[in-house]
Each structure stands twice: as C-alpha cells, then as structure tokens.
Simulated scan of single mutants.
Amino acid sequence: MKILVVDDNLSLLDQIRQILENQRYIVETATDGEKALNKLFDNPFDAIILDIMMPKIDGLTVLEEVRKAGIDVPVLMLTAKGDVEDRVKGLDLGADDYLAKPFSLDELVARLRALLRRAGGQCESVLQVHDLQLDTKSRKVTKSGNPIELTPREFSILEFLLHNKNRAVSRFSLAEHVWGDDFDPFSMSNFMDVHIKNLRQKIGDSGERKIIRTIRGVGYIIGDTE
C-alpha cells in the first residue's frame, strides 16, 4: 500500500519512512503543504500521515483541499501535544484520527493499520500486467508463474510503475521514489536508463509490444493498452 507522509521535520520524516518501508509500505514524502497537494493531485495514495504545522500551506488547509477535491483516503493528523483546538478542527474537516507529538513510532504504525483496515484497503497485494505479477507482501515477482530475481532498485521501479498502471510516470517522479533525496539529476541522469534496461531484460520485455514503454519527453508507462 502507498502512504504519503507530510512533515517538515526531516529527522522525523526519515524515521517514519524507514519504519513504514520496513513494514513493506510504499512511502512518498513531502516537507510542506504545497508539495503534498501536488503529489496528492498527481498520484493515488491509500493513506496520508499529515502534520498540521508546516511551511507554505499548513496541514489543516491541505486536508480541507483534499476533501474538497473528493479524495477520500484515510488521514492521520499529527498534532502538537495538548492542542485540542487543532484536533477538533482536523476531525471536523475530515481527518480520520490524530496522534499528538511526541509519539511512539509503533503506535503510529498501529494507528495506520487500523485506519487501513477500516477503509478496507485500496490496493491489492498482487499487482499484475499481462502474465507479469508482483506481490507487494512477499516481495516476489513472477512471469507466467516463473520466478524473477530483481535487485531492490529494480523491484522498486517495477512496483511504482505497476501502482501507476496505464498512467505515464515522469522520470523525476520515478527517480525520486527509488532514490529519494539521494538522487542528483545532473550526476545520475543515466541511472534510470540503466535500471530500466536491466529490468526489461530480466522480465523478457522485448519486441514491438513492450510492457514498459518509454514516453518521449515524459518518462515511462506500464500497462495493458497501447
């Protein structure tokens, strides 16, 4: 499942990202409300962990805009300890739960699981295109039932593309997901091409009807349609 975590505290953001990725969630992050809205309007998510106090656009405004846009995913608000007014306003605006800082990361994960259970989950554990399957829980990839060994980077690329099946994904969005803040578009510009090439070879993606297609000037798309 894909989670968006929004907080301007970089240390906390990194801790949340790590613990969620260890639980096999796909994690995207944003450090301010403006970046959060851009990501939310461009990509589907299964849940949002959203801090209230942030630069540019605060969390309550982000929540309000999200609900106005009809994005009905579970939202876990992070609030300052004892700030009852913000909690009440957040719940009124459509937040599903809140957690006061400082909090236990284990409690955050438990709260998130509860929200996802109540929401029924919006992503299947098995992602598929044609005879290619990726299981997000077991981290296994098969084609026509035969196992395919991928590196962690290759798996992450394929998983991100499959979560956005039949939608063009920009090179930057894909690189940001796979490498995070470590990606330098100037010194690492050919990294994506190399990994895509290796991934295509491993999944036997050749010929005229490729599963992973390059969209010139944009990025890549994976899907059933031409």
Rank of each mutant, 00 (worst) to 15 (best):
Thr151Phe: 11
His163Arg: 15
Pro152Asp: 11
Asp86Lys: 09
Leu150Ser: 03
Ser104His: 14
Asp97Pro: 02
Leu127Thr: 03
Ala110Cys: 08
Val169Phe: 08
Trp179Leu: 04
Asp182Lys: 14
Leu108Ser: 02
Ser189Asn: 12
Ala114Ser: 15
Gly145Leu: 10
Ser125Gln: 11
Thr79Ser: 15
Glu124Arg: 13
Leu105Ser: 07
Met188Tyr: 05
Trp179Gln: 07
Phe172Ile: 07
Gly120Arg: 01
Glu85His: 11
Asp135Lys: 03
Val141Gly: 01
Asn166Pro: 00
Ala95Glu: 02
Met188Cys: 08
Gly94Met: 00
Asp97Tyr: 13
Ser125Pro: 15
Asp83Glu: 13
Gln133Cys: 15
Leu91Phe: 12
Glu154Asp: 08
Glu107Asp: 14
Thr142Arg: 12
Ala175Arg: 00
Asp92His: 12
Arg111Val: 03
Leu78Met: 13
Asp97Thr: 03
Ala80Pro: 11
Pro185Ile: 04
Ala175Pro: 01
Asp106Cys: 04
Gly145Met: 08
Ala175Val: 03
Ala114Asn: 11
Gln128Trp: 05
Phe160Asn: 08
Ser189Ile: 07
Pro102Trp: 00
Lys140Gln: 12
Lys140Leu: 06
Leu112Val: 04
Lys89Asp: 00
Leu76Ala: 09
Gly121Lys: 07
Ile196Lys: 13
Val84Thr: 12
Ile148Ala: 07
Ser170Phe: 05
Leu162Glu: 05
Ala114Cys: 05
Arg118Met: 12
Asn146Glu: 08
Leu162Ala: 08
Asn146Leu: 10
Leu174Arg: 02
Leu161Met: 05
Phe172Tyr: 09
Val169Trp: 04
Leu199Cys: 01
Pro147Gly: 13
Leu91Tyr: 02
Val178Leu: 06
Val88Leu: 11
Ser156Tyr: 03
Gly82Leu: 06
His177Cys: 01
Asp135Gln: 02
Ser156Cys: 07
Leu78Gln: 10
Lys143His: 06
Leu115Val: 00
Thr151Ile: 09
Ile157Ser: 02
Asn166Glu: 12
Cys123Ser: 15
Ser156Thr: 12
Asp181Ala: 13
Leu105Glu: 07
Thr142His: 14
Ser138Gly: 11
Leu161Gly: 09
Leu91Pro: 02
Leu93Ala: 10
Asp193Tyr: 08
Gly90Leu: 03
Leu161Ala: 06
Thr136Gly: 03
Tyr98Asn: 01
Asn198Gln: 11
Leu132Thr: 04
Ile196Trp: 09
Asn166Gln: 03
Ala80Thr: 08
Asp193Gly: 07
Gln122Gly: 15
Met188Trp: 06
Arg171Asp: 07
Phe191Gln: 11
Glu159Met: 06
Ile196Tyr: 12
Cys123Phe: 15
Thr136Gln: 14
Arg139His: 13
Arg153Phe: 10
Asp86Leu: 02
Gly180Lys: 14
Lys143Trp: 03
Leu174Ser: 03
Leu93Trp: 07
Glu107His: 12
Leu162Met: 15
Leu161Gln: 04
Ala119Gly: 15
Arg113Lys: 15
Arg167Ala: 14
Ala80Arg: 10
Thr136Asp: 04
Thr79Arg: 03
Asp97Met: 09
Ile196Phe: 13
Leu161Lys: 05
Arg117Glu: 13
Val178Glu: 04
Gly120Trp: 06
Arg153Gln: 13
Leu108Ile: 04
Leu174Phe: 12
Arg171Tyr: 02
Leu91Thr: 03
Leu76Pro: 13
Ser156Trp: 01
Val84Gly: 05
Asn198Met: 09
Gly145Ile: 07
Glu107Arg: 11
Asn190Asp: 14
His195Glu: 15
Asn164Ala: 07
